[in-house]
């Protein structure tokens, strides 16, 4: 029973890691650059929503604030690509990586200036409610996190496999040159991917802020999510989610059965093991190009 409880709360954490990891992979696949500000996007999404809903700020109704903050995050992702990243088109990947690290710092300080450095929680209708069945006591937020992640995953799956834009995004990430030849406006598609990564980070942030508290340094969680993405196989969307879930589940079990401090070490130990024994990640899509 104890284990089931641990599993559920681990899964709920893992969903948040997974969603951030998803953002990493989305951008990596589309542009071959790693956006190290992804964790800070998540934090920003959380604070934007807090700023819209919490009574000490704007106090909008929760369900109205959600779409607004997701739109803001999407627009932000798009604009960052449009105004900053695209300027570096043709520069080395390192330049883009450093730029995103700097961007992370900027977002962190900006959030600190606007919302302060104290931990804050998102006021939401689910807070404090519980679901009991069998002997399990589940926080309503944990359940919501898992349900939303499942829905989002399904939504993304449908989007990528069934819609024209989704297919074009896949194509542009698999073979950029061919995408150009097919008349796909690759740069615009990449802008949409940044927007999508912003929205996903926003959702992750809302979920995170609903089940715990955020402060401007929360974005550093992105490093753990990055580990999750690598464990899952960088470049595979299902892998990123699975990696997130694995990391999320490992943490509580490590601190329960090994020792308290090990919950922080376990994900990185797993990362090392994966890199040694399966360097492409657990769920990688690797294929040799035929000539």
């Amino acid at each position: 029973m104890d284990n089931a409880q641990l599993l559920i709360s681990g899964l709920a954490n893992g969903c948040v890691y997974g969603l951030i990891a998803l953002g990493f992979v989305l951008i990596y696949k589309a542009t071959e650059a790693v956006n190290f500000a992804q964790g800070d996007f998540m934090m920003l999404g959380a604070f934007v929503t807090i700023g819209l809903t919490n009574t000490e700020y704007m106090g909008l109704p929760f369900w109205l604030a959600l779409p607004i903050s997701l739109m803001i995050m999407g627009a932000l992702g798009y604009l960052i690509d449009r105004l900053i990243i695209r300027r570096l088109f043709g520069e080395s990947q390192t330049a883009v990586v450093i730029l995103t690290i700097a961007l992370g710092f900027v977002i962190r300080f900006a959030a600190g200036l606007i919302w302060g450095h104290e931990p804050q929680t998102l006021q939401n209708p689910l807070a404090g409610k519980e679901i009991r069945f069998g002997g399990l006591v589940l926080g309503m937020e944990d359940v919501a996190v898992i349900v939303v992640t499942i829905l989002l995953t399904w939504g993304l799956y449908v989007f990528f496999s069934k819609t024209k834009l989704g297919l074009a995004m896949q194509g542009a990430s698999q073979n950029q040159l061919a995408a150009y030849y097919m008349g796909i406006p690759v740069k615009r598609v990449q802008g949409f991917i940044w927007a999508l990564a912003g929205v996903v980070a926003g959702i992750a942030g809302i979920l995170f802020a609903a089940k715990g508290s955020v402060d401007p340094t929360t974005g550093l969680l992105g490093i753990k999510a990055f580990a999750a993405a690598v464990i899952g196989g960088f470049g595979s969307l299902p892998g990123a989610l699975a990696g997130g879930l694995i990391v999320g589940v490992i943490e509580p079990f490590a601190s329960r059965y090994v020792a308290a401090g090990y919950s922080q070490i376990a994900p990185y130990a797993l990362l090392l093991a994966v890199l040694i024994f399966r360097p492409h990640g657990l769920f990688s899509q690797v294929r040799v190009k035929k000539v």
Binding site: K164, A168, Q170, A178, Y181, M182, G183
Partner: peptide, 29 residues
């Protein structure tokens, strides 16, 4: 491409992880 010129590149350059059908769909983008 919209004007009606399509380039079939050297070395094929298909979208490797998409199905044949999906590749064709992208051709009609």
């Amino acid at each position: 491409v919209q004007k009606g010129i399509v380039h079939v590149p050297e070395g094929r350059e298909v979208f490797p992880l998409l199905t044949v059908d999906e590749n064709l769909s992208l051709g009609a983008y």
